[in-house]
Design a protein around this nucleic acid. Structure first.
Lengths: 231, 231, 231, 231
DNA sequence: TATGAATGAGTGTTCATTCAT
DNA sequence: TATGAATGAACACTCATTCAT
């Protein structure tokens, strides 16, 4: 396994490298109070760490590389996080929180259930599958068993809420006669499964056999809602 | 993250500890030619390594622990494998091969397609979900991106074959009128997705919300084949 | 070896914590000219540092802890001392100076020599043995070899003067016939040795076997001056 | 504080550097079974560590330097000691044990008590004052408070035994009329104090004022036993 | 003058790999 | 072949020192 260190001479020099962030961050203003700068630094560390953790996994990630990528000195990381483990944990939380927020802001159920689910799927497609956020999901699957607190958090904040939402939608669909299979409400996982598989597929097998996730999800919805008359 | 070292004083003493093996191994005979003994040792290493890799992941696994668990000296591992990485790679191959063999021995398509798929699902349920082999799948998901050769191998030997088999079944089901959704043949992943989700669920969330995988798979099949008249 | 950090939220808050100082300091007036405030800060640092150095030794002491204990920011220390080493050196000087001053103010030799020595011992007993100042002696013994300048200073300012004083007393005692052993004047160390041992004993073994230093010193003086007729 | 690293290219090369050992070690035979070699290595580490600890103190000593001096790789140290702290503790024990053994083999009290004590003192003079073993005593004084287990051990094995021995001698001396001061038996520390002071003096002030320890001890004994008629 | 965030060299410890036995 | 002691590069974490505010 070879190392490809992202070397840049000095922190300040490297600081320019900032990429699109997983974390919400205001890229605009030069306004930098003491507190602001600290927050920016923390965000840079979170981004860099996320990137490294995704690529190498928790254990194989070196704090040195995170620091380099974030454009800060190694010691700076310890001003924001207690140690590598809690950095990983806080990090996952930090990145997931916005997702939760979104989940909570469920669009009001107007229109057909299928439209709703489709909108949801299309959003998932755009924002998760094949993106950093998708990789994060895979990361959680990968490291979850060794970080029970992370798995716990993810289950509590994302999985259980998502499941509850899906179940509500399914029940609505059943009530409205859009969904025939009544037992589906017991297993919202079935509704979500292909989307999850798509996430994993992209990071493992995309190279061997690219997957048209959008099309697959449509077929899946056809299966559940019955084929659409008009595309 | 704490270590729970499996300490046993001497290799020979530990050798007795052998558990159920993921690898086919003749547990019977005391007959031990030179070659046989070597093969046994190798098998012990493979088992031990698998166990450790599953629990800790590739990087966090120590050869010391593998050696202890296998009841051999650390150096012995290097008589069988070039280094840790190639051990991991060969290992996955070794464990996967029997699976492939089974896949190739597809039962001849007699009876209804649903029965076939159900038999398959029930077998998967028993042999994979919630078992060591299931954990192996998660391991591949976890380490795949860092071990392209492993992902390649897994795709080539398991995924693509499995997909081809599933596709054939689906096409048969469509031809026989058992499956209505014609586009499903394009995405055998949909057929398999809930099973995969079940595998992952067991190792991540079983504790929070146990999943009746068998029931879930039945609902899924009902969705695809239409509800059964008689159970 | 565990840390027991003396955490106090802010410098200003902690500033109140000031304890009895090893350093002479005017605790009275709220009068605080610029210079006074600086001097107070310096004194606070000296006290805090002394405490930490005594407990942990030079190398193991962290400037962070000194700053916290002194109720100043870390950077402030560098406004008063060049670096950790010179802080240690200046510090020892600072604390020792008053001792020297006292030594120089030898009480005029009235009364018997034994009375003089006894007064001296009793003072030592009260002010050194088992006190912070005693710990300082142990600190010098501990760090002396690595801080020649400290050892030098201590020898020049305290040891050599003290020895000279003791020698003078001994000679007087011999002249007056109070002390029989004429060679004692060559080794004032013998006169002082039990006191030094008492100092060390208190910080190392007091817990195992408490030592009645006062009684021991009396026995020692009896040995030198001959037993007292009346107690 | 400057570093004077004892650099030698390779462990094997450095191995030759072996000096006089504080630890009993057979320098003779080329006989080197596996076990023997391990013991030799351990002894080399103990010696090197002792040297470094004495010169720099516990915290300031680097394992790197110990390894270099011992002519082993850094990792090797961890084959013999759990960590730096327990190395220090075991080390002190290791070095002290022979001393204890000797103490236990007290010469049978023939001849005058003074002769006995004088023999003892002369031995102490030769073997402790101004030697590595003397430095060890100072080391214990220096680090004792931070290593209670070390102080405990030293008290239990050396101090308390030594005190008991001295007390017995003193009582014998009193019984025989060699010692006049009857209370001395309560404080054997007085008997030993000048010897201890000599130990400390040598490492701190020898440079400024060399001390004729032998002569001083004689004067001290004269004080206790009364002046000798013939020298 | 005072602050404390930031730095990065330094250090204890681990662990894959080698090799003499 | 099998062993496990020895190696040393690698890495997480610390802390004296600096400097922008």
């Amino acid at each position: 396994m070879t190392r490809k260190p992202t070397k840049t001479a000095t922190p300040s020099a490297a600081r320019a490298n900032a990429k699109a962030s997983v974390v919400a961050r205001s890229d605009e203003a030069p306004a930098s109070s003491r507190a602001t700068r600290a927050a920016e630094r923390r965000a840079a560390i979170v981004d860099a760490a996320m990137e490294e953790f995704i690529v190498r996994g928790f254990t194989a990630t070196r704090l040195d590389d995170i620091a380099k990528r974030a454009g800060v000195a190694k010691g700076t990381i310890y001003l924001h996080f207690k140690d590598k483990e809690s950095m990983f944990e806080e990090l996952v939380r930090t990145v997931i929180v916005p997702v939760v927020t979104k989940l909570n802001a469920l669009p009001p159920p107007t229109g057909s259930v299928r439209d709703l689910v489709e909108a949801f799927a299309s959003n998932f497609l755009k924002e998760v599958i094949g993106t950093r956020r998708g990789d994060l999901v895979r990361l959680i699957v990968a490291e979850g068993p060794r970080f029970p607190s992370v798995a716990d958090f993810y289950y509590r904040e994302v999985v259980s809420r998502g499941m509850a939402g899906m179940r509500a939608l399914i029940e609505l669909g059943i009530a409205r006669g859009e969904i025939r299979e009544k037992n589906l409400a017991r297993y919202p996982q079935i509704l979500v499964a292909p989307a999850m598989i798509a996430v994993i597929w992209q990071s493992l097998f995309a190279r061997h056999a690219p997957l048209d996730a959008q099309d697959m999800l449509r077929v899946h919805l056809d299966l559940i809602f019955g084929e659409r008359r008009t595309t």
